[in-house]
Design a protein around this nucleic acid. Sequence first.
DNA 1: TCCGCAAGTTGAACACGTTCAAATCGGAGA
DNA 2: TCTCCGATTTGAACGTGTTCAACTTGCGGA
Lengths: 246, 246
Amino acid sequence: MGSVTHTDNGSSPAAEQAARGRAADTSRGEQTRQAIVASAIRLFGEAGYEKTTMRAIAADAGVSVGNAYYYFPAKEALVSEFYLELQREHLARVEPILGSGTSFGDRLTAILREGIEVWAPHHAFAGRFIGIAAVPGSPVSPFSDASSEARELATSIFHRLVDSTETKMDPQLRARLPQLLWLAQLGLVVYWVHDTTPGQRRTRAVVDLAVPYLEYLVGASRMKIFKPLTTRGLTLLEAVWPRAAG
Amino acid sequence: MGSVTHTDNGSSPAAEQAARGRAADTSRGEQTRQAIVASAIRLFGEAGYEKTTMRAIAADAGVSVGNAYYYFPAKEALVSEFYLELQREHLARVEPILGSGTSFGDRLTAILREGIEVWAPHHAFAGRFIGIAAVPGSPVSPFSDASSEARELATSIFHRLVDSTETKMDPQLRARLPQLLWLAQLGLVVYWVHDTTPGQRRTRAVVDLAVPYLEYLVGASRMKIFKPLTTRGLTLLEAVWPRAAG
DNA sequence: TCCGCAAGTTGAACACGTTCAAATCGGAGA
DNA sequence: TCTCCGATTTGAACGTGTTCAACTTGCGGA
């Protein structure tokens, strides 16, 4: 942690100290960096991705265009800051839910709902975001190494949810359920982004229907008749997403 | 079908006669159009999406940049021509498979494998393509109105597969299976695009494991114990993708 | 106090996708 | 044959993301 010796090919010089332990950094550079991030987030939220130009972001932050590129390798990199911001808010909202004593399904629904709520004001922006996140090499891709931390953070939410649930289920399924839920959430996000119903109410309806179904499936997994279904499903998951991989 | 009275806000003038019945058109405009498409497809395949500039495409086709924009509203539109080209090839390869008398699973595997084979030479390009296709408004999006025809074409493949299969299954599932298979294929494509194993062999392994599992699930659907699982699953599908919608 | 140097900053310049007013083409009708 | 007019074509120009050589800042050590 905090190691300096790594080759970060595509990243900007200032990204060195990224990830952790930047909270306490009050150096000039860090202030500039945060000013750029703040402007970017605000303008993205106000005008969307395309309409927000790098020149506008720089001007709003009171720096030159070139300076923004000293801290961020590309406009896309600023998008991931926006993403992190919302991720943090989702985490904050989810915290009390995990502590509550309600059922597995109720808490899962609440978690997914809060996710939708956090993103709701940025539905249009999310459409562009997903286009960036979907391309394999992108650091914003949910499968990329760069976002492994965010991925672990997200799965850790589901991990805590699963660990604190009393529901009986196949133990092997239990071990893998957090990842499965993360995948399901990913699918939900894709669905939500394409949901053009007012207020994305169809997505909310899908959540209300899908979670009890999931709960039912999870509960069924410990029954003998469902063993082959469960086992084979987990074998498939192992091929799709080996336990070893991040 | 073939109606002329529609308001095609964003499309180019020449796109009017798109879709059907352009095969016989040998007018000057059509020749130019095809020259541009041919150059675009070739250059995309050779150098990828980003590195292929509109100027290069135009030069290669022997026309001016502006002329390319007379036929295509944007660079992205040329991507969908590339997509159509591969779609056509996949269809051609799939045709003999549908006619063969092998089992449901074997034919499904063959269909999916051929899809991978057709795209294999363009794995890198597909990474960019998916980024374009993932954004909601895009005409290349698999969920868009613009690609409803391609979508129906694709589901029709699975429709024929399902219709010609003897396997016993829940009748309601049978009615919806083509759409489910299409969704599964979509997921497979996303997986394949992100598969960095050499030759995307992991994706092939997943297909080999997933198809028998699917076959097993489909077969199980007619058993009494699996009825609630099937029924509730189909209810969920109805919420996700109403029968009425395209 | 001053020097050296790394960190930070600048804005002009570049390449690209896209637009558009103007030029050209070619066939239908006189 | 000539004229007209819509279809087609042109290339300069615009706005954008990105790069880069040069400049400025401020701090640690002589």
